[in-house]
Design a protein around this nucleic acid. Sequence first.
RNA 1: GCGACUGUAGCUCAACUGGAUAGAGCAUCGGCCUACGAAGCCGAGGGUUGCAGGUUCGAGUCCUGCCAGUCGCGCCA
Length: 612
Amino acid sequence: MDIVAQLESAFRAAIATALGPSHADADPAIRPSQNPAFGDFQANGALGLAKQVGEKPRDLAQRIAVAAATELGDLVEPLEVAGPGFINIRLRPPALARLLTAVDTPDLAVKPQPSAHAVVIDLCGVNVAKQMHVGHLRATIIGDALARVFERLGRTVHRENHLGDWGLPIAMVLHQLRAQRIDLDRLALEDLNRAYRDAQLTAKGDERGLEAARALGCGPHRVAELEAQHQGAAAFEEAARATLVKLQSGDPELVRDWQKLIDVTMREVFVAADVLNVRLRPEHSRGESFFRDRLAGVVDAFVRGGLGVEDQGAIVVRFPERERPLLIRKRDGGFLYATTDLAAVRYRVQELDGERVIYVVDARQRDHFQDVFDAAHLIGWDRLPDGTVAELLHVGFGTVLGKDRKPLKTRSGENFTLMALLDEAVGRGVHEVRQRAEDPESPTHGLTEGEIHRIGQAVGIAAVKYADLSTDLVRDYVFDLDRMIAFEGDTGPYLLYAHARICSIFARAGLDPAGFRSAELILEEPAERALALALLRYGAVVHDVARTLEPHRLCNYLRALCEHFSAFYQACPVLKADDPARRDSRLRLCDLTRRTLADGLDLLGISAPERM
RNA sequence: GCGACUGUAGCUCAACUGGAUAGAGCAUCGGCCUACGAAGCCGAGGGUUGCAGGUUCGAGUCCUGCCAGUCGCGCCA
């Protein structure tokens, strides 16, 4: 049992002793202390309880402390009541060593989350025939990190890459490429992207320009020119619609070409996922096309249930508490992305058995997901087969900005492609590692070019991912590679450095870390205590991330862990410790720190090299 | 117009969901390598938590009203 749970149960019992069994379920509010002067942990529950029972807080805290002391036995130093009624708790060194020993297991004492139901995570969300950009970076790495956390807790996780692979935009690209007689077998994503853009431009024509020209009474020549353009656009759109109808009816040649577009797009997605150390594979793709035969059923279900009503020819779902309706069928009979999303919710809850269905999508779609979730709830599609009500959650993230604080663009105003960004990050990482390896004194001196590249990639990717994951997700942030890749401060490379330093202790001495995993832990120095306390918290932090869906909590923890380690490493000689028992104890601390750090970084999808 | 999000040190961000003196990194200043990687450690200065009320023993955190910025708001996805 972990330490916080132990303290909670002891203080719960103490509260029952002090106030009677009617208060047996009161929350003792055990928290790690902010300040070492206030002990290792503190129980804050007495303050609130005193108010309820009309007793002076300090008096009540004193009575609880006396009762708790007998529950806790030799686990803690004498408890002290401080301030308005806090109870400060300090673990006795042998107890701390015992607790840490119990954590030093292959799974680092991270308790599995018992649930028969699955977790579904909607991530990545690329569009066929479009380049990935920085928005996909976030949807991919945040989703992957959350997926890894739930997998670490033993949950069944379904990663759902909800591809934009269907509908008129795709039909437009297909039509465009076929009209130009482009060889689909020799396509690169860049060609597709260009076709997509051209198709959009052609289809749009210049409707607004035409209206403006008429309104402003422009010359007949100008109006005619724009009219011609507009007619061209209408003709193009009609042809694209015809293509879509043929595709929908299963025309073999079109279906084959359509599949080629998907393949070309996904080839690059998987390359990006590989560079990013993200687990995303073909089996995770389930695009809009998967749901195409279910859309009419979605609308029917809402109409039959009286939830979908006609409005100006369209079908909408209305909500009692707000003006804004959700449109699920257009006047022309077509479906919208809300329709697909509703089909997907039903599938994920009822067929994938998703107890928590998590959408890692741009925060700007908050309103949309609220509507979809509320609509799903109204019709009962958030119920699992066994009747449990599923949690539908939108993890909305902020926008990646350029140095001008506007959404990141290239100098020519184009969207920054994800690949360009990753190439730059990896290039910078390799450059930094190579530069340091040139120093004959450096531990990385003499590494092969291949090793330098591998380590440099890890450094560059760690920099980008840590910068993205280490702040509150809803915030926008400025993409500044200089700051991200800095080798000092609150960065990915700082964490990798701490990891490499621990590895080098064992490497330099030619010792096998596994040889110290039963050494007796001696925790006397303040730096050793602080490191031990940090190590004890790991499992709770992983559970915290699963509960809140906030990966930055794990980042903050890992950075704090590294700071505790660095302070320890500075203050306490390891290989040159005074006596063999201390040396072995410290080597065990180093090994446990390294494994905890590597495990936590792995949950973030960051790999930690042994040298850098 | 309606709605959502954001506002904390010069800059970039935390604050364990209501607890003690609001903490880190960068930048600035001062220490520490004949002890293991100085990509590090120790220390100093720097704050009316956007503003004004309210709830509470206690508010950066909850409520109300303002201010500023960003993003949404029926036939695109």
